[in-house]
């Protein structure tokens, strides 16, 4: 068509400039603080794993779109970068790189592209990959390097240690009281938990860094407050009930909020647009479901950590939630 013809189109004729790209790259920026804290505590391996994960996610997406689906590759929209980052954030920093590549394949190839690509996947790709790796390679996936500030870092000996949730699970199983465990040497204090000096998947350790990212996303209107608040609040209340009833067997609710993948899950994984409900009411239900399921798994399940599973389970309910929880109508009659 010639350039100087008038355009005819339906209204509206203006757009607010929001785009998939802008949303995705905002999320990438929001993940940077957590990334920097991880580099601080776990050193170079963090950069290496992240690079491999992101690169292989992009590569798999490109190859699948180009050669299997035969569509125009859309790697520049940044969604594969996010999947890569989140996958990396959900593994220990000493993981074999081949496993990272395998995880990237599961995330992009199976969890995303097999469902029809961006926007059509039922489950969060990074979480599917993480759970796949966790079940298939439980030893490698639960050997956590100790968080050591970068100036104490020695290449020669990587010391491994358990995560706070692991200590808790193991200790309670052996009949120790929670207060005893909290005082144990391996357990970090609350301040350390807040800034992230503890064992765990390397992106999930620092609550502060993740919250900074989440506030950025809220400010950019990429996410809304509903899911994170519902997730954290329901987990807090639910675990708080157990703690009030029996504080010797159950940890404090703030311990649960600060440890494991709770913050990362609530702010970045559960809020994934594609796999979360559409309406505000639906989001609240989804967030509460995630929070309660996480605590149930943490307290009564075989795994010390429950965020991944709870989000994946709730992902499966999203179509149902979308059906059952409609947005508030202008008029009820």
């Amino acid at each position: 068509m010639s350039e100087n013809l008038l355009q005819v189109s339906g209204a509206p004729h203006v757009h607010n400039g929001e785009s998939t790209k802008r949303i995705m790259w905002s999320v990438v920026i929001a993940l940077l603080p957590a990334f920097m804290v991880s580099v601080f505590y776990f050193g170079l391996p963090v950069i290496l794993i992240t690079a491999v994960s992101v690169a292989s996610c992009i590569l798999f997406e490109y190859l699948i779109q180009k050669f299997i689906l035969k569509t125009k590759p859309t790697i520049d929209d940044g969604s594969a970068v996010i999947t890569g980052l989140l996958l990396a954030f959900n593994v220990p920093s000493n993981l074999n790189l081949l496993l990272v590549v395998l995880g990237a394949f599961v995330a992009i190839g199976i969890a995303k592209m097999a469902f029809g690509g961006l926007g059509n996947n039922l489950f969060n790709p990074a979480l599917v990959a993480r759970v796949f790796l966790l079940i298939s390679f439980p030893v490698q996936m639960t050997t956590w390097p100790k968080a050591t500030p970068i100036w104490n870092f020695g290449f020669a000996d990587i010391v491994t240690g358990p995560t706070p949730l692991g200590i808790l699970k193991e200790g309670v199983k052996n009949g120790d009281a929670v207060s005893q465990l909290m005082g144990s040497e391996a357990m970090p204090d609350y301040l350390q938990m807040l800034v992230g000096q503890m064992g765990g998947s390397f992106g999930e350790i620092s609550a502060v860094a993740i919250l900074i990212g989440a506030i950025f996303l809220l400010f950019r209107k990429v996410i809304t407050w509903h899911i994170p608040v519902a997730f954290l609040l329901s987990a807090f209340v639910f675990s708080g009930i157990f703690w009030l009833v029996d504080p010797t067997h159950y940890a404090t609710p703030w311990f649960h909020l600060l440890t494991g993948g709770m913050m990362l899950g609530a702010c970045f994984m559960a809020t994934d647009m594609v796999t979360s409900p559409m309406s505000a009411r639906g989001m609240l239900v989804f967030g509460c479901g995630c929070g309660i399921l996480t605590i149930i798994i943490r307290l009564f399940g075989a795994y010390p950590e429950g965020v991944s599973f709870s989000i994946l389970i709730m992902n499966a309910f999203v179509p149902l939630i979308n059906k059952g929880f409609k947005p508030q109508p202008y008029s009820k009659i």
Partner: peptide, 28 residues
Amino acid sequence: DASESKRIPESNCLRCGKCIQACPMGLE
């Protein structure tokens, strides 16, 4: 002007729910 007039080609729906948040009638 020409740059404002041309629509940007559509891509996959992200199911972000922004259309629902924006709808003044509470529709989907």
